[in-house]
């Protein structure tokens, strides 16, 4: 384990729709003996709604500058936050003029380029490592799991940390917990539809339906994922999607940290497994 402490960037849904992701993230890192110190007074990364890259860079210069003062590298469990923080980090590090322009807005945006930004999947598999995690595994989750990656993990190339077409980081964690990875290649990197949920629900639901049915047809007991927007679409909106298409899916959706937490022997309540919308009891029942 290379680092014992990270600056934790929870992201806006961490206190609401994705509170189980926040809970399981904290529980897993505590169990691993790695401290998470919240990026103090962090602000929103800009999500997918702030489309102007320059505003995104300025918003995240503040987050990066705070982490820099804390002397820590950032870890985030959200794929969109990761993408925005990471691309801002690259742009600011590589462009002195941009750094100066951002700094001229406010002193709190003075960032010197001393921070690395990582997604939780990257930290778990590449920083901590499968071997080190293996030593902490206490239980086996005997479930069939569809690892769903969505966007911003394998693409775009400038910030990607896994293969764009055949990503594998989450597969390795699923295998680590003793679960079976179901064949799920076609839909595992497709978008969940989340960015269009409020403006073109018809398209968003169709995208999510494909991901959910893809997992179901592959024989999965649950989906594992690593992004709160995907979580909202596939879990919290699942009953709406079932209603809209007149279908039954009933697919539990777990954050990868919840699944890993079960294998690390962490209590399911502490992992927020009672907060997921689609009941997770069947998955908890497969822990041996």
């Amino acid at each position: 384990m290379s680092e014992r402490k990270y600056a934790y960037y929870p992201g806006c849904p961490s206190g609401t729709t994705a509170m189980e992701q926040d809970m399981s993230m904290k529980a897993v890192f505590e169990k691993l003996g790695i401290e998470l110190e919240e990026v103090e007074d962090w602000n929103c990364c800009g999500a997918s709604e702030v489309e102007d890259p320059e505003i995104v860079y300025a918003l995240n210069a503040r987050n990066l500058a705070i982490a820099e003062k804390q002397g820590l590298n950032i870890v985030t469990p959200c794929s969109i936050c990761y993408y925005n923080l990471s691309r801002s980090n690259k742009a600011l590090k590589g462009n002195e003029e941009l750094r100066a322009r951002v700094r001229s807005i406010d002193d709190s945006l003075a960032y010197n380029g001393g921070v690395e930004v990582k997604h939780v999947l990257d930290v778990l598999v590449n920083d901590i490592g499968i071997e080190a995690l293996k030593q902490k595994v206490e239980k086996k989750v005997e479930a069939k799991v569809a690892p769903y990656y969505g966007c911003y993990i394998g693409r775009p190339p400038e910030t990607a940390f896994d293969d764009p077409d055949a990503p594998g980081l989450m597969d390795r964690l699923v295998e680590l917990v003793g679960a079976e990875v179901v064949p799920y290649n076609y839909t595992k990197t497709k978008c969940c539809g989340g960015p269009l949920m409020m403006t073109r629900q018809d398209i968003a639901f169709e995208m999510a339906r494909k991901v959910l049915e893809g997992a179901k047809n592959a024989g999965a007991d649950c989906i594992a994922l690593a992004c709160p927007l995907c979580g909202m679409m596939l879990d919290a909106k699942q009953p709406d999607i079932e209603e809209a298409f007149g279908i039954e899916i009933g697919m539990p959706v777990l954050y990868i940290t919840q699944l890993l937490g079960l294998a690390l022997g962490i209590d399911s309540g502490k992992l927020g497994l009672n907060k997921n919308i689609v009941d997770t009891k069947d998955i908890i029942g497969k822990v041996v």
């Binding site: 206190g15 609401t16 505003i55 300025a58 807005i105 406010d106």
Partner: peptide
Amino acid sequence: KMGPKALFPEKVKDREVMKKIFEQM
């Protein structure tokens, strides 16, 4: 999941800088 964090806005302490970012960038 609809506790105080959902019902009331969570505010960063330094909100003046947010305004400045949107005004100037």
